[in-house]
Simulated scan of single mutants.
Amino acid sequence: MTSSAALILTDDDGGHRHGEYKVPGGKLVVVDLDIHQGAFTNVSLSGDFFLEPDHALLDINRGLTALPETSTAAQIAAAVAAALPTDAVLFGFSAEAVAVAVRRALSRATSWSDHHWNVIAPVVLSTHVNVALDEVLTEEVGAGRRNPTLRFWDWEEPSVVIGRFQSVRNEINPDGVARHGITVVRRISGGGAMFMEAGNCITYSLYLPQSLVDGVGIADSYAFLDAWVMAALEKLGIKAFYVPLNDIATELGKIGGAAQKRLANGGMLHHVTMSYDIDADKMVDVLRIGKEKISDKGIRSAKKRVDPLGRQTGLARTEIIEAMMDVFSGLYGATPSELTEAELAAARERVAAKFGTDEWLNRVP
């Protein structure tokens, strides 16, 4: 049911708080509460979700009442779960979703609209500099020196970008790399290797404060941060969906994959590479894609795992990128931005000291 009920214990002395969270692919969760002597009171949960039995709504309100305002997202979710009757059915939301709404009410979690977003259009840079910029710009956003930003990559040299924890020896075929003149670079995020030729894929990076995903589980954060991409693809006639943990696919096959990295200063990187016109024969000549990697995909060949956007849309790569930027800007009020000379200089310094070194590339031999 969708009615709202409040449990009133005391007069409010801390101001009314209101938080909202739209569950990716789910329903809207709204929390209203007051703070009295450092604890929650007058708690009221509402939204367009479904919940049975009806009295479970009051149970959730009771479970949240008197919790300390310093409660973490995990503690709030645990309190909700403990308050629910054993026969409760939640549809379109979860205990974790309630926790996100509560944290937003406390201004400890933020929403997209709480930030001024920037968009950086593609600029041709070396793959090493692109990878280094991901670290530099994530730090800048975490430190509050740059607005949260969406940046699209561009590059010229054929490259493979491997994940932070991947083994060079196990992922790369040295003969194929030499044969095709491939540049191999290690990034700061985990995940799998990306085969990237100029014009054959679309890569973007989101630099954001971790407050945007406060209370959102790591698995759910991928779909949450790429909801705008799904909207852009749908506008282009493509119905895309997430395949847990981090693959983006359509009914015709995989079109991309995402990776993330959280920094100690509160900045977060979320980046995605989507295939546009990939050379599958060259890809499998350069990468060692073992049977175990594709054993759970229900397919026989790695070539069949990727179905490029170029074939699915019939549009130029630049048109797809423009559509993505337009949708992102329309949804979040983002404004254009450019890389600063200081940011580019810092990235080049990181290449010399870290990303371009054998020590970093072979940190996992």
Rank of each mutant, 00 (worst) to 15 (best):
M1A: 15
T2E: 15
S4I: 10
A5D: 13
L9G: 11
D13S: 09
D13W: 00
R17K: 14
E20T: 12
K22W: 03
V23Y: 06
V23C: 01
G25V: 01
V29W: 04
G38C: 03
N42I: 06
N42G: 15
V43Q: 07
G47L: 07
F49V: 06
D54M: 14
H55G: 10
I60Y: 02
L64D: 11
L64M: 10
T65N: 13
A66W: 14
L67G: 08
P68M: 05
E69L: 14
A73K: 01
A73W: 06
Q75P: 01
I76H: 01
V80N: 03
A81C: 00
A82Y: 00
A83R: 00
L84Y: 07
A88L: 09
L90T: 10
L90I: 10
F91K: 13
E96P: 03
A99V: 11
R108L: 15
W112F: 15
V119I: 15
A121I: 12
P122H: 13
H128M: 08
V129D: 05
A132K: 04
A132P: 02
L133S: 05
V136G: 04
V136N: 05
L137H: 07
E139R: 11
G142D: 03
G142I: 12
G142A: 06
A143H: 11
R145E: 12
R145P: 01
R146E: 09
P148C: 07
P148I: 04
R151L: 12
R151K: 12
E156W: 06
S159W: 05
S159C: 07
V160R: 02
V161W: 06
S167V: 03
N170Q: 10
I172H: 02
P174G: 05
G176S: 04
G176H: 05
V177G: 01
A178F: 04
A178E: 13
H180M: 00
G181V: 09
G181W: 11
I182Q: 05
R187H: 13
S189K: 05
A193G: 12
G199K: 05
L208Q: 09
V213Q: 00
D214N: 12
G215V: 01
L225N: 13
A232M: 10
L233H: 11
E234Y: 08
G237P: 02
I238D: 01
K239H: 13
A249M: 07
G253W: 08
A258V: 11
A258G: 11
K261H: 14
L263W: 07
L263D: 04
G266A: 08
G266D: 05
M268K: 08
M268N: 06
M274Q: 13
D279R: 02
K282C: 00
V284M: 02
L287P: 03
L287I: 03
E292I: 13
I294C: 04
S295Y: 03
K297G: 08
A302P: 15
V306D: 00
Q312K: 04
G314V: 04
L315T: 06
R317S: 07
M325C: 14
V327Y: 11
F328C: 08
S337C: 05
L339W: 07
T340M: 04
A345T: 14
A345N: 08
A346E: 09
A347L: 02
A347C: 05
R350L: 14
A353D: 14
W360A: 02
R363E: 10
V364G: 00
